[in-house]
C-alpha cells in the first residue's frame, strides 16, 4: 500500500492544495461560461437586431400631418410641423420647461419641421394621442397621453401632467430630403 509523500513547500503550502484549488477554479470558470450562454440567449436574436434600423419615406407627409411607424416594436411619431407650430415651440421660454430643450435640439439642422419622437409616454409607457388625424392633442397642441393626463407641446416636450421628461428623440439621420433612417 503506497504511502504518499506530501510535498510541503517553503511557505507551507502543500502541492495537493494547489490541485484542489486549480480543479475548483477551473470547474467554476466552466460553470461561469455555461452560465453566460444561458444569460446571453435571452438577448435580442440576430433577426431582431436586423430590424433595429428602418428607412421611412416622408414624401407623402404633408405639412401639419403626422404618421406613426413601428420601430423596434414601438411606435415612432413623425410630424411635419407647420410654421405656427414651430413658432409656438420656439416662443416658449426654455426655463419654464420641466425638461429644458429647444426645438432645434430636438430636430436636425435645416429640417426643423420634421419632429421625430418615440410615441411612448415617458411616464409609464402608454402611446399618447395626437399623431392621427382628429385625435386630442392636449392643452399645448402637441400630444396628449390619456393614461395619466400628460400634455406635450408642439415640440413634444412635457408641459403638464406626471411624465418626467420630453418624448424621446430616437437616433435618426436623413439619407435624402424625403428618406429618413431611424436607428
Amino acid at each position: 500500500m503506497a504511502i504518499v509523500e506530501e510535498s510541503v513547500g517553503e511557505d507551507g503550502v502543500r502541492r495537493r492544495d494547489f490541485i484542489y484549488v486549480a480543479t475548483g477554479a477551473f470547474a467554476a470558470a466552466g460553470a461561469a461560461a455555461a452560465g453566460w450562454s444561458l444569460v446571453d440567449q435571452m438577448n435580442p436574436s440576430a433577426d431582431v437586431l436586423a430590424l433595429a434600423s428602418i428607412e421611412v419615406d416622408l414624401a407623402a407627409v404633408q405639412t401639419g400631418q403626422a404618421i406613426k411607424v413601428s420601430w423596434r416594436g414601438k411606435p415612432v411619431f413623425i410630424r411635419n410641423l407647420t410654421a405656427a407650430e414651430i413658432q409656438a415651440a420656439n416662443a416658449t421660454p426654455v426655463s419654464e420647461l420641466r425638461d429644458p430643450q429647444t426645438l432645434a435640439e430636438r430636430t436636425k439642422e435645416g429640417k426643423q419641421n420634421w419632429l421625430i419622437t418615440l410615441g411612448v409616454c415617458t411616464h409609464l409607457g402608454c402611446v399618447p394621442l395626437g399623431a392621427a388625424e382628429g385625435e386630442v392633442r392636449g392643452d399645448y397642441q402637441g400630444y396628449f397621453c390619456p393614461c395619466h393626463g400628460s400634455h406635450y407641446d408642439t415640440a413634444a416636450r412635457i408641459r403638464k401632467g406626471p411624465a418626467p421628461t420630453n418624448l424621446e428623440v430616437p437616433e435618426y439621420a436623413f439619407k435624402s430630403d424625403t428618406l429618413v433612417q431611424i436607428g
Binding site: 450562454s37 440567449q41 438577448n43 436574436s45 440576430a46 433577426d47
Partner: peptide, 11 residues
C-alpha cells in the same frame, strides 16, 4: 429560428 438567430441557440 433557434438554430440560426438565437444567441447560442444552436448549442
Amino acid at each position: 429560428h433557434i438554430m440560426r438567430n438565437v444567441n447560442g441557440g444552436w448549442m
